[in-house]
Design a protein around this nucleic acid. Structure first.
Lengths: 222, 222, 222, 222
DNA sequence: GATGAATGAGTATTCATTCAT
DNA sequence: GATGAATGAATACTCATTCAT
């Protein structure tokens, strides 16, 4: 791989970082690898991004913004629940498929922190708590944990709201909307992460979304 | 925590390793932490287990055997599809809940290796291929990747077979069984990993399984 | 310089560290320099000493103990004030002369921390306070600052007590004992640090001590 | 802190540098901190001052000139030895108190270079010699070492001359004038650096000087 | 003249693995 | 068999200095 030398250094770093993080995961990615690919000095990365963790966060946070906007726009442009769900998943499947490597890092290096966990109050607001003795987990760790969770939650909440509304309007069976939404959301995400669908070779994102939603609404039983 | 000093050293190491890996994840777990808890010498770990990675693998592989047997036994003891599915998920939810930390490591530290991926042939047999240039990925890496996948697949295939059979017997709608199974399987797994269900505080594993299967079969639509 | 390879590694590290810190000062001394001279691995230093700062502290703290004991013994073995003072300074001049490089680091790299300062309550107990906004100085910094001060204070207090007692017994003029003691103590220390006395080439430590004490007691005026 | 934007850039840099060096010491002070406070470009500092070290040197050298002149003027305006000494220390105590942070850097970051030391010939002229093998110390290092020493010597020599003269005129006991002067000079300096006197809260610089000189001349004995 | 983006040498620290006892 | 002392490769981060604009 070769990054266009005419691009500004900040952009070159972003491209290189995405490549390296995607290839190696967060921990095994090295700044040295990133600067070699970006062909910039080490200080340049720190000037623009401050630290390895901030570099990664900026990368995914910046990507997340238009993605969430697209999810929101997709559900807004449709009228009925089924069409909203299909539009939502068409956008989601495409994004997760294209950013599989990066989003797996978010899910499993940044969030797979076994000494933190989230609890949700009755309004589904998350709080980070220590699983073990409090002093094992610094405030900084908790903040980081929450920060990455917010990314996923921003995507997830759009779906959850659809399901909450669907339950309210009795289009969906009553139940725990968060659990229903999470089964659906994470089942799809994991399928993509683990290359279950092999989307690219067979069917379009749109068709994939239709199957997902059909099964969600109507089940698999004959 | 204190490990019974009368246990044989190999057992003490296993107990300590489970504790430490669960608490810290694979990368952040240190051999020093493990030997301190097991109260054995560092060489002893290498004598019995060969390396950090093999220690971890043995830990999860050993746990996986009775788990898969229990899944198999559960589906065999029931007659009809729905009962089999419920029995399967009652076992699975309990196991994943109790071994959440360890299994997350399998899913996301050992499998989140973005320069490998699996492809499945028409009989759903997996092969590891490099995502990028071949020479980036050693045979050893591929073997390791496949090894951890086999663990998950051994659990997953029991479910997939139920669904394949269900489709064959027209109890389930025709479709891609692997995709249907994976949505279901991974959706449940992720829900547990990310503490969506907060199982412990509300309902039994059995009841949880019933809800999962009901939604799978009949969907969420009214 | 060559360190006896038969010595235990911990001892070799201590010898090398004293050499390197003395030669280069705390900041400019590098672990790489120390391990090269000690001919040990980098991990070995961390195993025995934990960090660069702890290595340095242990070095000076260990040296300080017999030194303070010697100062104490010297004043105890004499009866009258003048003899006590002479005995004290004979020991002090020798030690400071022989450990000039190391003790300068204590005085001026570890204590010359301009955003901390000590204040003394009426019983002359020291407290570390920030000179500027509190949040500039971590608790850890303050503890370190105090830790090194304690070393010097342990030496200084023996002298101060002599002077306090001397004032009480009216052998010395009334006045601020701490100020008098500090002029005397630090004047001598600085003279040695800055090689003013060139002790080695002219007179013995004993004779030097006599001059110091004579001038202190009787002044320079005819 | 805010520096008057109407001042010329060179002046702004000096003010900022004094602030930053005083607060952080030489090593921990950063050019970035200085230019941020001075609100100038980084190149500007290099244009006017050449390097960090030259910036610091110019700062203290410029301050030292009027200080030495004031010391000289103080001793010249008085007739007898005691009055000269008091005048000298009144000026010195005030200056060292006000510039404590900066002068500590001179004493202990710039002079605490253990591979150099000064020797004095019979006329008390200093030469820099290596303590260890000659080739460890560059000529540049030696020059720098001497340069900072000259600052202190220019202050010190005025006192030394008073004492030499006092010994010659038999107002003072015969002895090594340099040693006597250095005890007095450095004892006072250190007392101020280490906040022993807590000058500000109790007595004036003049009164402080009187006590210092009284003790020097007459000693502490009753 | 003035700037500040870019640099990269330099350094403390970690931890899986080895091997002599 | 069991140990743990010793290792050193690997890596994030800092900051004085340069130089094209």
């Amino acid at each position: 791989m070769q990054i266009d030398a005419k691009l500004p250094k900040e952009k070159r770093i972003e491209i290189a970082a995405e490549e390296i993080f995607s290839k190696f995961g967060y921990e095994k990615a090295t700044l040295d690898g990133i600067i070699a690919l970006a062909d910039v000095g080490k200080g340049t990365v720190y000037k623009y991004f401050g630290s390895k963790e901030q570099l990664f966060y900026k990368l995914v946070a910046v990507k997340n913004v238009p993605f969430v906007e697209a999810l929101q726009a997709a559900v807004e442009k449709e009228k009925d629940l089924q069409a909203k769900l299909i539009a939502y998943f068409a956008v989601l499947v495409e994004f997760y498929h294209k950013n599989s490597a990066l989003w797996q890092i978010v899910y499993f290096e940044m969030l797979n922190n076994s000494y933190c966990r989230l609890i949700f109050d009755e309004d589904d607001n998350p709080t980070v708590v220590s699983r073990y003795s409090e002093d094992l987990v610094s405030e900084e760790t908790k903040e980081r944990y929450l920060r990455y969770h917010q990314l996923i939650i921003s995507e997830f909440d759009i779906l959850k709201k659809l399901i909450v509304d669907g339950m309210a309007s009795q289009e969906l069976k009553a139940g725990n909307a968060r659990v229903s939404a999470s089964h659906l959301f994470f089942g799809v995400a994991m399928g993509i992460f683990h290359h279950i669908h092999q989307v690219e070779t067979t069917i379009s994102y749109e068709e994939m979304a239709k199957i997902i939603v059909d099964r969600f609404l109507n089940g698999e039983a004959m």
